[in-house]
């Protein structure tokens, strides 16, 4: 049986490990770009990536194909990443007082990296300093390159909200990366 995007899910549904392998290999980039864009690299990101696929495998029998597989996985990756961010924030709140920035103080300052013209890295750090809701929009629109409609579908919010969050996020990114234009 195929879903709306033409994906053949019979092998995955039947539990064929080769079909799982092919499925994970096919969609790893979608999930990796989303999760790593949201929380950065590391074992926790890989853990979440695996969980995204495992949840899909567990629910594949009830997957009706209303959304594409890619949108379904993206939504799941965003939700699990947001949970991880909340967990980190909670932990920091317990042990370090009120949280304004969920990242360690010793993490490189984006504007300092930008001044060294290490732009991709600077942008990654700056994105991870955004509020989680804004970060999700930026990761899907700018990092993944999804359209406004697809971003809205993956996040379950109206297209107008995507645009307003993106606009505010860009404003914040511009502030963080202020000196970048002079160095690139």
């Amino acid at each position: 049986m195929s879903d709306a995007s033409g994906e053949n899910l019979d092998g995955v549904r039947s539990g064929d490990p080769d079909a799982w392998r092919a499925f994970v290999a096919r969609y790893e980039d979608v999930v990796a770009a989303t999760v790593i864009g949201m929380i950065g690299r590391g074992p926790e990101a890989e853990d979440i990536g695996q969980e995204v696929f495992i949840r899909f495998f567990r629910n594949v029998h009830s997957f009706r194909g209303d959304a594409s597989v890619s949108t379904y996985l993206t939504r799941s990756a965003i939700n699990l990443s947001l949970n991880a961010i909340k967990r980190r924030q909670r932990m920091r709140r317990w042990f370090s007082g009120p949280v304004e920035d969920v990242h360690p103080a010793s993490e490189p300052d984006p504007s300092a990296l930008a001044e060294q013209a290490d732009l991709s890295k600077a942008v990654s750090f700056a994105i991870r300093k955004l509020k989680p809701d804004y970060r999700a929009v930026v990761v899907l629109r700018l990092v993944r390159g999804l359209s406004t409609a697809h971003t809205a579908a993956a996040l379950g919010i109206p297209a107008g909200t995507v645009m307003s969050r993106l606009s505010r996020a860009q404003e914040t990114l511009r502030k963080h990366l202020g000196g970048v234009a002079d160095h690139v």
């Binding site: 490990p17 695996q50 991709s120 942008v123 700018l142 990092v143 860009q170």
Partner: peptide, 27 residues
């Protein structure tokens, strides 16, 4: 302007993999 530079850099810095063993470990 700067928004275009940021979007380009974000796309360049996008990860496309969790590492060499991800598929096997997930399966």
């Amino acid at each position: 302007g700067l928004d275009l530079l940021i979007a380009r850099a974000a796309r360049e810095g996008a990860a496309d993999s969790f590492g060499p063993y991800f598929v096997e470990r997930t399966v």
